[in-house]
Every structure is written in structure tokens, then in C-alpha cells.
Computed example of a mutant assay.
Amino acid sequence: MNPKNQRKRKKTALITGAASGIGYELAYIFALNDYNLVLVDRMAHKLAEVTDQFCKKFGILVKPVVKDLSVQTSPEEIFNELQQEDIKVDVLVNNAGFGIHGLFNETNLNTELEMLQVNLVCLTHLTKLFLKDMVKQGEGKVLNLSSAAAFQPGPLMAVYFATKAYVLSFSQALACELEGTGVTVTALCPGPTESAFHERTGIAGAKQIESNNMMDAQTVARIGYRALMEGKTVAIPGLKNKLLAEIVRFTPRKLVTKIVKSMQEVK
């Protein structure tokens, strides 16, 4: 990405986890709307393919950044690299994340620590780094990928659900703090979505996956993008997910937790 050419365009969006799933679809929408892109992903080959595709199809400037966001130093490295190249980020999309399924006392600690780093720490770190310039400029947008999982505890995916609850709470608090600054923060809270997430997590055979008419990643991305552009604080794709998010507020927590556990069980 040439910084001089980058300045000719109005906006640049940085998207993590951009090589597949919701991240890819969000990147596609931003490209369609004439944004330059900084695409971050750990999968170098897929990221190169996406970069080449977008450059040819949209004629935009795309900077690929191959990073494993479970590594603690990654956020600073990304920020410093963009600073050195004089690339201004107008929109930050913290999309990267993953889950793990199983009883907490049996799951792998190292995997869960990596999950905390990606889903929660890295998201917070990147937001901290890029938000300062946005506030200084008086404009900017942050989209954080939370989940419908954020609204209740999640037995058999206890750590994942907890990380998404953090993302939702963090996003809502920041949105309030930033009122009047020209900067907005949006939390996107999709339900089960068609992607490779379920296979990697190990819940492809769970009741809620097999019985759920999952929304496709493209639809989720469109809803998220529209909410971001409108400055909404929380976006929950799908009427069913919206209703469930409300219902759990008025249902005894112990009952909600048991219901979620039964839905998380793999046949």
C-alpha cells in the first residue's frame, strides 16, 4: 500500500480475521464501498488470495498483514507498522476470534489462554492503540465482534461465552464514553453463523447447530456494516436472536444456564 495513494482515498478499514467467514464478508463490503483495506490474518496463503482478489476486482489499495493474534506483541507490531507507513485507520473491525468446546476441567489451558488473548486482550489492545487518533481527529468507527453468546453463561463453552460478554460490555461502555466525540463503537452479536468456526470449535454436532437455521456470513456482515455506519451501539442479526437476548433477561439465570448447556451438548 502506497501511503501517498492511500491519502487520496477518504477511508481505510482495518479488519482482523479477514481471510474467511464474517471477516472476509465485511472486508468485501468495505471494498465495495471504496475503502482501502488493511487485512490481518494468520493464514498467509488465504490472505494473499483475498488481497489479490480485492485489488483486481475493486482497484483499491490493500495491505495484508500476516499475524497470529494470540501472540501478545501482535497489536503493537501491527500499529507500529502502519504508523511507519503513514497509514491512517478510519475504521477498526475487531473480528478475529475462536472458541473451544468441552468441560472446563478437561479442556486445554493453553488453547483457552490463546482464546483470551485473541477474543479479549488483542481486541482491547488494538482498540486502545487506534482509538486515540480517532478521537483526536474527531471521527472514526470501531466494530467489535461479540456474539449472541454474550447475553448468558455458556456451559461447555464457558470461556468463549465469557469473552463475548466482555466484548459486549466493553463496547457499550466505550460507546457511552465517546458520545459527542465523532467516534462510535458498535458490538455485532450474531447467533450461529455458517462458517468454519463450528468445526474448529468442535460443536458441529451440537443440538443448537443441527437444529438451527444458521444465518450466512454475508448476511451477518451486511447487518453489521449497516449498524456500524448508522452508529448503533448493539446489532443482533435475526429476529430469533433478538428475542432470545430479551427473554434471557427475564428468565431465572440458573434455568437459562441449564438450557444453554443442553443446547451445547454434542450428540
Score class of each variant (00 low, 15 high):
179 E>F: 14
196 A>N: 12
203 I>M: 05
193 T>C: 07
164 K>S: 01
206 A>Q: 02
201 T>C: 11
192 P>L: 07
187 A>M: 11
206 A>V: 04
181 T>G: 08
164 K>T: 15
204 A>E: 11
175 A>P: 12
179 E>M: 14
165 A>H: 11
195 S>F: 10
207 K>H: 09
187 A>I: 09
179 E>D: 15
179 E>Y: 13
220 V>E: 01
199 E>A: 09
219 T>Q: 10
205 G>Y: 11
213 N>P: 07
179 E>S: 08
185 V>D: 00
175 A>R: 10
166 Y>F: 13
184 T>M: 06
165 A>D: 02
191 G>Q: 01
203 I>N: 15
193 T>M: 03
218 Q>L: 14
171 S>F: 06
172 Q>S: 10
220 V>Q: 04
173 A>Y: 10
165 A>L: 04
204 A>C: 05
189 C>D: 05
178 L>R: 03
206 A>I: 03
174 L>G: 01
182 G>K: 01
210 E>H: 15
172 Q>K: 14
198 H>F: 09
178 L>S: 05
163 T>P: 01
170 F>C: 13
206 A>Y: 02
194 E>A: 04
219 T>I: 08
221 A>D: 02
198 H>L: 06
215 M>S: 10
171 S>V: 05
210 E>P: 05
207 K>N: 12
162 A>Y: 04
185 V>K: 03
212 N>H: 10
195 S>T: 12
208 Q>W: 11
209 I>L: 12
195 S>H: 07
208 Q>H: 12
179 E>Q: 15
197 F>W: 06
161 F>P: 07
166 Y>I: 05
188 L>I: 13
198 H>G: 05
210 E>Q: 12
215 M>G: 06
184 T>D: 00
215 M>H: 11
